[in-house]
Amino acid sequence: MEGKICVGVDVGTHSTKVAILRGGEILATRVMRAQDPEAETPEAALRAMLAEAGLSWKEVSFTVATGVGRDTIPFAQRTRSEQLCHARGAYYHFPQARTVLDIGSEGVRAMRLNEKGEVRDFVCNSKCAAGTGAFLEVISEVLEVSIGEMGELALRAPGREMVSSYCTVFAESEVISLIHRGRSKWSILAGVIQAVAERSFELLKKIGLRPQVVLTGGGSQNPGLKKALEEMAGEEMWVPPEPQIIGALGAALWGEVLTISP
């Protein structure tokens, strides 16, 4: 089994992620933005990554695809749901993980894990985009702050504005009106993040919120959101390195399992 190569591909709405494992260790990862017209296809990306590592396509033992577009990867032998992949990816980094919250761009999901890292239960957000990463993206455009710096800014907010709208579109204009009323960008951000955190926290409560809680997905990189969630839960939450590739990593880890018993 030493040195076996497994690949995970996570095809999301906004980006595609690839992870390569060799002998259970992360060998390479890559993120391709969907909006970027120059972006490589998953297959080309994988070829390039393998070439960089001095490996050939034939050496890959197993490829697993996950994410909303998981059926669009012809070279994957199997597919696995995001829930199972995020859980496995989070558990890889933190064996203490019992609750995993994945804040993706359009989907938020909470998973409950047992000691072996198996998913025992999960809940997902509804058909409305309120409280997802995409919601934050819309607001980041309006406030002209990058998604990356958003959380940091919010942490330094002196106060918090109430953002009450459910609908992303209405929230957008609520935010615009707050700007026009001269409210500080920081406080507005803090309000937006609070609103998003509340939505995610509802899912955490539904699933039972057992420590250790691990955050994954793009949203987990937002320190303001993490802090807001920690305050609501009264509980420290952990974020793995490169949280956005956890799904792809989990898929690759599933590849290891599935090569044994496909």
């Binding site: 749901s81 829930q83 199972l84 998913v119 999960f122």
Partner: peptide
Amino acid sequence: LQGDYSLEGLEQVRGRIEAFVEM
């Protein structure tokens, strides 16, 4: 699963069913 009486609505929950059966 919550939904309406439409087949599109069902497509939106397909992923959850797959995750559940896999789980």
